[in-house]
Amino acid sequence: MIVFERADNVKINELNVGSVVDAVLTTEPNWSTFYSGEFVTFRCDMNEGENSDWEYKLNKNNESYLSIKKDKNSMLALNHSGEYQCCGHRRNSAQTKCSNTVTVSVSNKVVVTRRPNRPHVFSGETITLTCEVQGGETTEWKCDWNRDGSLVNRTNSKDWMFNISESSSGNYMCRCRRRDDWFSSTQWSEAFTLSVSDPNKPSLVLQPNWSQIYRGEKVTLRCEIQGGTQWTYEWRTTNRNSPSSSEYRIN
């Protein structure tokens, strides 16, 4: 038995066994999805004689891809999809056997999403960034977070919640690893730009705008803020039932 090892982002879609053959190609670990940095082991078993009786090669898309002598392991990087098959040539003989094929496809898209998802964010607000791994929704992840080329945080989940400050502006990228496998890693996501704005100071408007107001008259106080629409309001008054809207009417 000879072992071919590959590292990178691959997804094992199917194991096709056509006609009954003695040579068998298997993969370890037998996960449904692999990501960049993980190890994939192709095992080629001729099911005949000793390992030393055979010379092995790994074919990709029906073309010779890699030749390996007995008892040699090779760690390589998978970057593209393809159909893999191992073949063995028996020394001092014309006998050649080829295995079933294993179809491997790349699947590792990573994107950054945010909550709340609105165009304006301000200092003092709380935001949650999520590193979404395509095909890995049910996997438990540990993630690295990069801002403007520097590692700024590591989280034990795909979510990162933090309070926004003026220094939070920048281009964010993330990548994740399985919690139970340090060597597993996705590629870095595309950059996500976070722009932090300074909110304008609110202004208080009185309607009607009289210089003197007498007991029993009705007035409306309006709190106006330029920029953004999703505001909540707090009125400081002796009335405990003060509203949470932008207007406050006094009778």
Score class of each variant (00 low, 15 high):
R91S: 07
V3L: 07
D71C: 08
V21M: 10
P119R: 11
L221V: 02
R179Y: 06
V40A: 07
N163C: 06
T96R: 08
S32N: 09
Y65E: 05
N9I: 04
N59Y: 10
G228V: 02
N13T: 10
Y214G: 13
C143T: 03
D53A: 11
S123M: 09
A23H: 01
C143W: 08
K72N: 10
Q187G: 14
W182M: 13
N117E: 14
V102K: 02
C174M: 11
N9L: 01
N100R: 04
N79S: 11
S36Y: 13
I213T: 10
F162T: 03
V20L: 08
E125C: 05
E132V: 13
S99I: 02
I68K: 05
D22L: 10
N108G: 13
G18H: 03
E247W: 09
K11W: 08
A191N: 09
W145H: 05
K158D: 09
N30I: 12
G136L: 01
C143M: 04
T33Y: 12
E132P: 00
N13P: 00
R222I: 11
K142H: 07
E50R: 09
T186V: 03
D8G: 12
N59C: 02
Y172Q: 08
R236Q: 15
V111T: 13
F34H: 15
G82F: 06
N79I: 05
G136T: 00
W210D: 09
S165E: 09
F183N: 13
Q226R: 15
H80A: 14
G227W: 04
L129E: 07
P119T: 10
A191G: 14
D71M: 12
Y35D: 06
N47V: 01
T103W: 01
S81G: 15
Q134L: 10
N61T: 10
N251W: 03
E166F: 04
D8S: 11
H80P: 01
Q207P: 02
I12V: 11
Q187R: 11
D71Y: 15
K11V: 04
R114Q: 15
L66P: 00
A7K: 15
Q95P: 00
I127D: 00
D8F: 08
D144Y: 10
T186H: 02
K72C: 05
K218E: 11
T26W: 01
R147C: 05
I127C: 00
K109V: 11
V121G: 00
N13R: 05
N79L: 08
N239F: 10
V104K: 05
E140Q: 12
